[in-house]
């Protein structure tokens, strides 16, 4: 029961090491052991997407992945999106388009779209909606989130 492992990973560019029970999922490890509470836990059964983080370049549900599976990995979370205190273009667009209200789903939405826009830099609205179809938002009706993603894609294209 108290079987533990020492996990070392790179979190938003910084090396982190902490000991954890083997049964602890990545979301709880990030939140409790590494005190990175920006990642949120909404459903704990892999549907709501609030806990989405990027592990070795791929978006994953941190509630469905054990912390031990992330040993040696590079993990990106919402805390890593801004640079030197300046919001990323996606974060700024979320605010501009009112893509968040209570903010609880927001970290997962941001990380899902952060990864998606790298893969699909010029998406259609339908593609954006499909991309976040695994992230539940109860507040916004999604429209501001979709608009933010399309706005970012357009401005990156123009840049």
């Amino acid at each position: 029961m108290s079987d533990t492992r020492t996990i070392s990973l790179t979190l938003n560019g910084a090396a982190k090491t902490a000991e954890t029970d083997v049964r602890v999922n990545l979301a709880d490890f990030l939140r409790h052991s590494l005190e990175a509470t920006g990642t949120h836990v909404g459903c704990e059964h892999g549907v709501c997407g609030a806990c989405t983080v990027i592990v070795d370049g791929q978006p994953v549900r941190a509630c469905l992945m054990l912390a031990v599976q992330a040993d040696g990995s590079t993990v990106e979370t919402v805390e890593g999106l801004a640079t030197d205190g300046a919001l990323s273009d996606l974060q700024a667009a979320f605010s501009r388009h009112h893509g968040l209200q209570c903010g609880f789903c927001t970290p997962g939405m941001l990380m899902t779209l952060h990864a998606f826009l790298k893969e699909v830099p010029n998406p259609s609205e339908t593609e954006v909606r499909e991309a976040i179809s695994g992230n539940i938002c109860r507040c916004t009706g999604y429209q501001g989130i979709v608009a933010a993603a399309l706005d970012v894609a357009a401005s990156r294209k123009g840049a």
């Binding site: 939140r31 836990v41 919001l87 605010s95 609880f104």
Partner: peptide, 19 residues
Amino acid sequence: VQRLEDARLVTGRGRYVDD
């Protein structure tokens, strides 16, 4: 106007009960 709440919430600096 854009919300004053947003900068905290989009950077993971929200403070919910479990935080």
